[in-house]
């Protein structure tokens, strides 16, 4: 695979790139370019933050889930997201940053999380739409990342993909039930699709021609597919599913191109995308404040438990000595 231009690379960097090109995994103690380390911390950290901020919009419905079964399923799913956040933070920690430092950067806005979680969840059908569309889009990104070049990241993704397999199905099942339900339920399902369709398309990031980090990240195999490629794949897979549900994708321009076999679709509103990223989404402030409050409220718990552990270990040492 052709990599970045060799002329400006040091011998170390050339060897490093060659390892990646051969499909070798880079491990924590291996030499790596600073920019590779920085990009990974940014990407894994952002991914981790997305998992834990992503708990909030779905957590919003745990107390209102309509049956005991749905309540358990939703809780298990949101719990998985906490677990996935945890795995990813651990992967980032192998690069020499602490979890607390990453939290701090989330809280002070230096690190981002996926914009999709700045949208509100307004009806129970949103639990369906989030699982079906948001998890569906996330999975498209995550499956190829199991082959990413950084070992701890790849291994975290393997575990995440394995656990996540039920999430999208859970969401789709809610959508199926709603679409086959009463008129009101069907209306909720269509409304949820209307609100989440374009935000879901935005999850793949800006068009390749406008994407800042793409080329280098692809050479390093920390990004495996282009944004547009994955977005197209998502649309191609999702449109027939919407048809199956009897729901309408909110796009007048949507049509199957019989030459390519791919759907043509309208671009999301990228102005809205940038607004949401820059803090003007419907729930940015709420989401971040909820995280900050949880972290601040938990400080005495974390400190108390640590203090007790230190006391206990001091006592043990006295006993041994």
């Amino acid at each position: 695979m052709a990599s970045t231009e060799n002329t400006e690379l040091s011998e170390q960097e050339i060897a490093f790139q060659a390892r990646i090109d051969r499909g070798e995994k880079i491990e924590p103690k291996d030499w790596m370019p600073d920019a590779y380390r920085r990009s990974l911390i940014r990407q894994i950290g952002q991914h981790a933050h997305s998992e834990i901020v992503g708990q909030l919009p779905e957590g919003n419905w745990i107390t209102r889930a309509p049956t005991l079964e749905r309540k358990a399923n939703l809780l298990a799913k949101v719990q998985d997201e906490a677990g996935h956040g945890l795995y990813l933070y651990c992967a980032a920690e192998t690069l020499g940053i602490t979890r607390d430092e990453m939290f701090e950067m989330l809280h002070n806005g230096k690190m981002k999380y996926s914009s999709i979680f700045n949208y509100p969840t307004l009806t129970w059908a949103d639990m369906g739409a989030v699982g079906w569309l948001v998890d569906g889009a996330a999975i498209m990104n995550q499956v190829p990342l199991q082959r990413t070049s950084y070992g701890p990241y790849a291994r975290a993704m393997v575990r995440i993909c394995k656990e996540e397999s039920f999430h999208q199905r859970q969401g789709f099942h809610i959508m199926m039930t709603m679409s086959n339900g009463s008129g009101e339920q069907k209306r909720m399902a269509q409304d949820a699709l209307n609100r989440f369709w374009y935000p879901a398309l935005m999850m793949f990031g800006p068009s390749d021609k406008d994407s800042v980090h793409s080329a280098q990240s692809m050479a390093w195999k920390i990004k495996m597919n282009s944004n547009d490629e994955l977005r197209q794949k998502f649309v191609d897979e999702t449109v027939p599913q919407a048809e199956y549900l009897g729901l309408t994708i909110p796009d007048d321009q949507l049509s199957l191109d019989s030459d390519t076999g791919h759907y043509r679709f309208s671009e999301p509103d990228w102005e809205e995308f940038h607004q949401v990223i820059n803090g003007n989404g419907p729930c940015n402030e709420e989401r971040l404040n909820a995280r900050i409050k949880a972290w601040d409220d938990g400080a005495w718990v974390r400190e108390g438990m640590m203090a007790h552990a230190n006391k206990r270990s001091a006592k043990k040492q006295v006993a041994v000595g």
Binding site: I52, Q55, L56, G59, I62, L75, V78, Q79, A82, G83, G85, L86, Y89, A290, K293, A294, D297, G298, A299, V301, R302
Partner: peptide, 11 residues
């Protein structure tokens, strides 16, 4: 869920 004092406790 989502607002525990630390991820491990949340889970």
């Amino acid at each position: 869920c989502g607002v525990g004092p630390v991820l491990e406790e949340d889970i």
